[in-house]
């Protein structure tokens, strides 16, 4: 117990120094319960700055961008690099803001009371029936352990239109009350356990959770909600960054294969192709993973020989890309590619 206290105070001393660098290296001294799964994530310098600004101001960071562009993965990378615990909230269309904070198992308690009356088992105290949600856990962690964390609220636009508005107070003030159990004191990240008064944001800065929210913009988020967020749009990476991403993720690939994959991918993303769903980075990485499995060498060679030919031949090659299913997700896009391949073939013949 005393040992964990000691490590905690060390951690606190250096909390202020922790910044996100986007290098993908794990923290030297991860906090208790930190996210330790390695995340090879290459962030653009401006995104690194954005994360650090959000970290400094402790304001929620709202991320938009292409599907499969790394919005969600960023939270993992940030948690890993800062050595923070990670709380993931995946939003569904039926999610309510309340669910992120806590759920009170009234039903379980009722049953337990019934059983107690019948003479078997016993009802536990009320507060045992509170199940905290991920955001609730993060606020609790900050309040009770003085430990910061990363909270991921994924695809907030999927929820009902009330959802973001219902979260305003919790995101802003980082406090909530379990109203079913009055004896639990209000949980307030600005008022750590043992402190009698509420502290300022500046004093609490390094102990508050960092909230990362992603959106696909299926709905326009309400103005008051937007006002509280920092907004960052994750652009599609440029050629050099893409190359780094590949090199970072796939170690020791066959000579020249990564450049080849990248070319094919960029070719497939060309707007002239008019695909309904252009492949994103995550699909691309999946595809490369498949191709770099053992025993796929022949396919890579075939691909290499195809693309080394003339432009028309290259177009033709679309239909022969192995494991196209990893990149192209709709039948109509598949048809389009096959049509292009055939079209160029017929003009040749």
């Amino acid at each position: 117990m005393s040992e964990s206290k000691a490590t905690q105070s060390i951690a606190q001393a250096d909390l202020g120094k922790r910044v996100y660098t986007g290098s993908g290296k794990g923290a030297e001294k991860p906090l208790a319960g930190a996210w330790t799964e390695e995340e090879p994530y290459i962030a653009a310098p401006s995104l690194v700055d954005a994360v650090n600004t959000a970290l400094y101001l402790r304001r929620p960071l709202l991320l938009e961008g292409e599907p499969g562009g790394g919005k969600t993965r960023l939270a993992f990378a940030v948690a890993y690099e800062l050595g923070y615990p990670l709380h993931e909230c995946y939003i569904r269309s039926t999610s309510r803001a309340q669910d992120l904070l806590y759920e009170y198992d009234a039903l379980g308690r009722l049953y337990d009371i019934q059983e107690e009356k019948a003479g078997s088992g016993s009802a536990k105290p009320r507060k045992e029936y509170v199940n905290y949600g991920e955001l609730g856990k993060a606020i609790k962690r900050s309040t009770e352990e003085n430990s910061p964390s990363v909270v991921l609220i994924d695809e907030i636009d999927k929820a009902d239109i009330d959802f973001p508005n219902d979260l305003l107070l919790e995101l802003d003030r980082l406090k909530f009350q379990v109203k079913e159990v009055p004896e639990i004191e209000g949980i307030n990240a600005f008022k750590p356990t043992g402190s009698s008064t509420e502290q300022t944001r500046e004093q609490r800065r390094h102990h508050l959770p960092l909230i990362i929210i992603t959106s696909n913009r299926e709905k326009e988020l309400p103005k008051p909600f937007l006002r509280r967020c920092l907004f960052y749009y994750i652009n599609f990476p440029d050629d050099r960054t893409l190359k780094t991403i590949l090199e970072n993720r796939f170690i020791d690939p066959p000579e020249g294969s990564l450049a080849l994959f990248q070319n094919i991918f960029l070719e497939l993303r060309r707007p002239e192709l008019n695909l309904r769903k252009t492949p994103g980075i995550s699909e691309f990485l999946d595809w490369v993973t498949i191709l770099l499995q053992k025993g796929q060498g022949a396919k890579i060679k075939a691909l290499q020989s195809l693309t080394s030919q003339s432009k028309e031949q290259q177009l033709k090659a679309f239909a022969q890309i192995p494991h196209l299913e990893a990149l192209i997700k709709t039948q109509s896009d598949r048809d389009t590619l096959f049509r292009i391949s055939r079209g160029s073939g017929s003009t040749n013949g």
Binding site: A50, N52, T53, Y56, E64, C229, F231
Partner: peptide, 25 residues
């Protein structure tokens, strides 16, 4: 001291703080 390294970083900072959508950007 955030965003004071160069004009571009300064712009990025304000852009992050003061825009809420791509159109805003």
């Amino acid at each position: 001291g955030l965003g004071l390294e160069n004009p571009d970083k300064f712009k990025q900072l304000l852009r992050l703080l003061w825009t809420k959508s791509r159109e805003d950007q």
